[in-house]
């Protein structure tokens, strides 16, 4: 299982109702169904990934989350999850608002553009970072809204969100001392557990 999924799994209570935005091939929901007996749906637009969801028996709804979640009622899910999709959205701030409306709590993961390797790429080479982790060139990348941890923290602050938990780590999700000390420089992945301020 993906390491970030095992962290997310720990943050989701058993038997809860989960909505997974940009659920991909349904791996997380499949895991949560088996380990935590959760119910819920994944939203996805990629036909191949939807097919994989059907094959593994994950309930998946074809829906573009960039167009909002109008068809979902407020507070209808215990947790709304979105892994590694924030940076690919046209309106990440609006989707975040929608997540917080539909879910009582939200879990968001995203890559940190403030990581030292990105800074090195841009600062020394003067080019947009391309790595194993971010393999796209600037012109064909689906990732159109990169941010750093600090940027995301600012957004949470301006939206007056409550950060319940946060984990900033490297890709292997090992306990990483530099990432703990200087997350915006050494952390590669962020996992945020947030809720609307009540």
């Amino acid at each position: 299982m993906r390491r970030d999924f095992s962290v997310i799994s720990q943050w989701i209570p058993p038997q809860s109702r989960v909505l997974d935005l940009a659920c991909g091939d349904g791996e997380l929901l499949d895991q949560l169904k088996r380990d935590k007996s959760v119910s819920g749906y994944g939203l996805e637009i990629d036909p191949d990934k939807i097919q994989t969801c059907l094959e593994r028996g994950v309930s998946v709804i074809e829906q573009d989350i960039d167009k909002g979640l109008n068809n979902f009622e407020s507070g209808s899910f215990d947790t709304v999850v979105m892994t590694s999709a924030l940076q690919a959205l046209h309106n990440p701030d609006k989707v975040l608002d929608e997540m917080l409306r539909v879910g009582k709590e939200c879990i968001v993961t995203f890559p940190n553009f403030g990581h030292w390797r990105c800074r090195l790429h841009l600062g020394i080479h003067g080019r947009m970072p391309v790595s194993e982790f971010m393999p796209y060139s600037w012109y064909d990348t689906p990732n159109i809204h990169f941010c750093t941890f600090k940027d995301f923290e600012d957004l949470c602050h301006s939206k007056r969100l409550r950060v319940l938990r946060r984990l900033v780590t490297d890709q292997q999700l090992k306990d990483n001392l530099p990432a703990r000390l200087l997350p915006n420089l050494f952390g590669e992945v962020a996992i945020y557990h947030i809720s609307p301020k009540t």
Partner: peptide, 13 residues
Amino acid sequence: HTAGKDVSYLKVD
């Protein structure tokens, strides 16, 4: 989904 039922949906091009 509002009624909490199990559903999958595809919009086939």
